[in-house]
Nucleic acid binder design. Structure first.
Lengths: 336, 336
DNA sequence: ACTCTTTCTGGGAACGTTTGCGGGAACGTT
DNA sequence: AACGTTCCCGCAAACGTTCCCAGAAAGAGT
C-alpha cells in the first residue's frame, strides 16, 4: 500500500515540493497555471496529505477527544451523535473512550488523549469522580476542554449543562400540585452537580410549598438502573411508611424503581407516582408511560462540540469560566 | 503548553537522543544504569512521546476507525462499548463516525479515515448502501478492515455477523408452533445480508412447515422505527385481511408496528402477535413485553475488534475471507 | 542602460521520532 | 604486544510536511 507524497508529485512535474505544497493550499505566490497543473496531477495520483507529518509540523491535530461514562446509555449515545455531527461538518475527527464509571480509567483515558495531542477534550465525569482537579490541571496547561452534563460543583472551566435545579423543581412542584404528600427522592451522587442540583431543586420545591423536608424520604445513590433498584429497596427500609410519589434523579433509576413497584403489585400512579429525568425514549413506551424531565441530549452534544471548536480556534473570543445552561422541560405522562 | 521531547531529556542528561530513545524502549544496547537514569528523568519531566512523530516514522498509527449508521441505536452503542473496551486494553485509540444511513457520507467518512492513516477499519453498512465495492477496494489496497453486522451478500473480506437466517427461522417457527396462521414479515433492505437472510429464514420456515409463502404478507422497508410504522400501514393496505402475527426484521421496526397496533385498539398477542430482532432492552419493559431474537451486541463489538487487531498485527495468521458467525437466541415473551 | 518592483519558484531547515552504522573503551585471548 | 569481542553510545539520515529566506526572471520606471 503506497501513499503518494508531495515529493512524488513534485518529481513527476519537475518542480519543488515547496511549490506543490503551496499550490495545494492555494497560496497566492503560485502561478495559476502551475497551481491547476499540480491540483490535477494530485487528483490523478490520488494524493492524500499525510496527517502525521502535517500535525507534527503544525503541532496540532484536527482530532477532538470525548470521554463518557458509558456509550450504551441512550443519553450519552445521543450526545455523541450531536458531537460527531458537528465535528464532521467542521472537518474534525472524534476519538472516543468510556470510563465505565471508573475514576482511574477516566484519568488514564484523559492522559492517553493528551498524549495523542488531541486538539481539545470533551468530558462527562464518571459517577465515582469526586473532584475536578485533574480536569482543572489540564485547563491550566492550556488544553482546550469543555465539560458537559456531569460536572463538579464549582468547576473552573467551561461547561455545558442543563438547568438541573429548575427541572427538579418543576418536577417536584408538579407532584405537589397533583396532591401527592409523601414525595420521596432517589438522589444521585452529591459530588456531581447533577446529583446535587436535582436534590436541591427537589428540597426547595418542598420547602417553598410549606412542606417539611424529610430525610427519611431521600436515598442517595448512583445514576443507573441497578441504583434505582437498590435505592427503592433502601427507601422501603428506612421510611416508616410508603411514599406516594418518587422523583428519581435519572430515568434509569426511575426504571429500577418502576420494576420493583410493579413486582410488589402496586399501581402506578395510584399507589406510587413516578417521575424521572432525561427523557429516555423507553419511558414513552412503557405502560404507564413515565413522566420525566426532558434534557436536549443531541443539542447538548452540539453545543459542547461547537463551544470546544470555538475554544480551539478562537480562544480569545470565549469566556474561560462560563457555563452554558440549556433548558429542561417537564413532560407529564401517566405515571404521575 | 510545552511538551518535553527526547532532546530535552538528552540535553539534561548530557547524552544523545538516540540513547534516550533506546533506553525508553528497553533496547539491550543501553547500560542498565543509564536506562534507569533516563527512565527516571523522563518520569520527572513528564515525558509523553509525540505520537505524530512516532507514527510518521513508523508509518502507522495505533488508531482504529469505526463507522456505524447511527450511534444512538442501542445495538450499535453496545457494540461500540465492546469495541472501545478491547481497543483500550490493547493500547489502541478509536475514531468514531456515523454515516446516518447515508451512502455518500459513509464513503466520505471512510476516505477521511484512510487519509488519517488509521491502522484498521471497522464498519457496518448504512441501509442505503447497495454494494460493497468501496470496501473491497480498500481491502485490495491492503487496509485491514472488518465488517460487522450489516454486510453485503457475498462480501469478499472478513466479517463478523450473527446467524440471521437461523434466528429468523426460529422466530417464525415459534410463531407457527403457537398456532398463528397468517404470519406477516416486515422485511429489511435486501441488499444487506441481515435483510436478506432474515427474510430467507422467515420464508423457509413457512415452507418447511408446509405453508405457502404469501407475498402479500411481506413488506420490504428499512430498519428503523419509522420504517416499522410505514411498513405496518402498507401491510394493511396490501393484504386482504389482517395478519395474526408479524415477524419484524428489527426491534425498532417491531416497536413502530407495536404502537400502530395499540392505537388501533388491537390486543397483543391476542389479535396480532409480534416478534422482533436484536433484543433492545426496551422490549423487556413494555407491556406486553416483546418477544425477540437476541444478538450478543457487546460480543459482536469485542470479536470484531479482536479480529481487526489480529488482522493488523498478525496478518498472516488470519483467513482473509472468513466470516465469523455468532449465535442468536430466541427470547419468548408475552407478545407472542 | 540602469535600478526597482513584482511575480514566481527553489533550497533547506525544522517538527520529534527511530534506527542503521560506525566507533571508542574495556576486556580477554593468543 | 597485537588482535578480536563485547558493551555502550553517538552521528546522521529519514519519515512527509510547512514555511522562511533567497533568488531568478520579467516587466516597469527613470
Amino acid at each position: 500500500m503506497h501513499h503518494t507524497t508531495l515529493k512524488d508529485i513534485a518529481a513527476k512535474l519537475g518542480v519543488s515540493t515547496s511549490t506543490v505544497s503551496r499550490a495545494l493550499q492555494g497560496h497566492p505566490d503560485i502561478h495559476p497555471e502551475t497551481r491547476e497543473l499540480v491540483l490535477k496531477t494530485a487528483r490523478e495520483m490520488n494524493y492524500q496529505p499525510n496527517a502525521f507529518a502535517q500535525n507534527l509540523k503544525k503541532k496540532r491535530s484536527n482530532t477532538i477527544g470525548v470521554i463518557v461514562p458509558q456509550v450504551k446509555h441512550f443519553f450519552f449515545a445521543e450526545i455523541m451523535a450531536g458531537i460527531t455531527d458537528v465535528a464532521y461538518r467542521a472537518g474534525y475527527n472524534v476519538f472516543i473512550s468510556q470510563s465505565n464509571e471508573d475514576y482511574q480509567r477516566e484519568v488514564i483515558n484523559l492522559q492517553a488523549m493528551v498524549a495523542q495531542r488531541v486538539a481539545g477534550l470533551l468530558t462527562s465525569l464518571s459517577s465515582s469522580t469526586t473532584s475536578c482537579s485533574h480536569l482543572e490541571a489540564l485547563v491550566q496547561r492550556g488544553v482546550p476542554l469543555v465539560c458537559f452534563d456531569r460536572v463538579c460543583e464549582g468547576f473552573k472551566g467551561v461547561s455545558v449543562i442543563v438547568d438541573d435545579y429548575d427541572g427538579a423543581f418543576q418536577a417536584t412542584q408538579h407532584l405537589i400540585n397533583r396532591g401527592y404528600r409523601r414525595i420521596a427522592h432517589l438522589a444521585g451522587p452529591q459530588n456531581l452537580s447533577i446529583g446535587h442540583q436535582r436534590f436541591a431543586g427537589y428540597r426547595d420545591a418542598l420547602v417553598k410549598s410549606g412542606r417539611p423536608y424529610d430525610p427519611s424520604l431521600v436515598v442517595f445513590g448512583g445514576l443507573n438502573e441497578e441504583d434505582g433498584d437498590a435505592g427503592f429497596k433502601q427507601l422501603l427500609k428506612q421510611s416508616p411508611q410508603l411514599p406516594d410519589a418518587i422523583f428519581c434523579v435519572t430515568d434509569p433509576v426511575a426504571l429500577g424503581a418502576y420494576q420493583n413497584i410493579k413486582q410488589m403489585g402496586l399501581k402506578i400512579p395510584q399507589d406510587i407516582a413516578l417521575v424521572g429525568f432525561s427523557d429516555n425514549p423507553i419511558g414513552a413506551l412503557i405502560d404507564p408511560p413515565l413522566s420525566t424531565v426532558r434534557q436536549p441530549a443531541y443539542e447538548i452534544g452540539e453545543t459542547a462540540a461547537k463551544t470546544l471548536l470555538d475554544l480551539i480556534e478562537h480562544p480569545e473570543s470565549i469566556e474561560k469560566n462560563q457555563t452554558i445552561v440549556l433548558k429542561t422541560t417537564l413532560i407529564v405522562r401517566q405515571s404521575s
